[in-house]
Design a protein around this nucleic acid. Structure first.
Lengths: 109, 109
DNA sequence: GCGAACTGCAACTGAAAGGTTGCGCTTAAC
DNA sequence: GTTAAGCGCAACCTTTCAGTTGCAGTTCGC
């Protein structure tokens, strides 16, 4: 939670349409589970569980406001994940280029 | 498959430890399902299904070599996803900064 | 203080997903 | 031509997960 979650855990949290919809709303405006349930076609309890999943990977943060608990979306884990994926993807592409060069060399020696 | 898969679909494919392990191996060297099964503690059929999932989101590409079918990891969908996540995360952070500024203004008018 | 709104916990259901075993088909090797 | 290696398909099992309903505990408003 405080430390950034692993890429696989983050991807797991992001592998659900309802959670993306929740994050989209929270990205615009902090909302509570009840308020989200009014806007989405699922029950408050389902939303609360999704918020728990998102909170465990640090994508969301609760803040008490009076008697209700509003959540906001945090971009830091997302940008961190973006950097990791960028590096991995580029490494694969470089390896592919090397393989292509070898194949080219073998075809036209 | 040819068009880049949606972020949620990509994250779904990346939300599994075995698939990450497969991708890690394929990032180093093209391998077939049978060859991967020799290196990982799961059956060839399980690997084949994982490869199917990865292929559907464009993270992997098959190439026939003789009578075997070797797969290689493709970095392009990953870098594309990285850019999307980067943008979304930055948008959330900007919104958070705005909210903090408003709160600050309200605290010290 | 009382009631209403908000949250949290627990049990249940249905569907999806990872994994296995078994079988049949193709294809290279000898 | 026969054989063995490699791949694909289908059925089955088990676990996980999204979603629901129901109920108990809190906290603000009047």
């Amino acid at each position: 939670m405080t430390a950034v979650a692993s890429p696989v855990a983050l991807c797991g949290a992001l592998a659900d349409d309802t959670r993306w919809e929740i994050l989209r709303r929270l990205g615009e405006q902090p909302l509570s589970a009840s308020e989200l349930a009014q806007r989405l076609p699922v029950t408050r309890q389902a939303i609360a569980r999704h918020l728990g999943v998102l909170h465990e990977v640090g994508l969301v943060e609760p803040a008490k406001e009076g008697r209700q608990l509003r959540y906001r979306a945090l971009g830091q884990p997302l940008t961190q994940l973006a950097r990791d994926l960028e590096n991995i993807g580029q490494a694969w592409e470089q390896r592919l280029d090397r393989l292509r060069a070898i194949a080219e060399e073998r075809a036209h020696p």
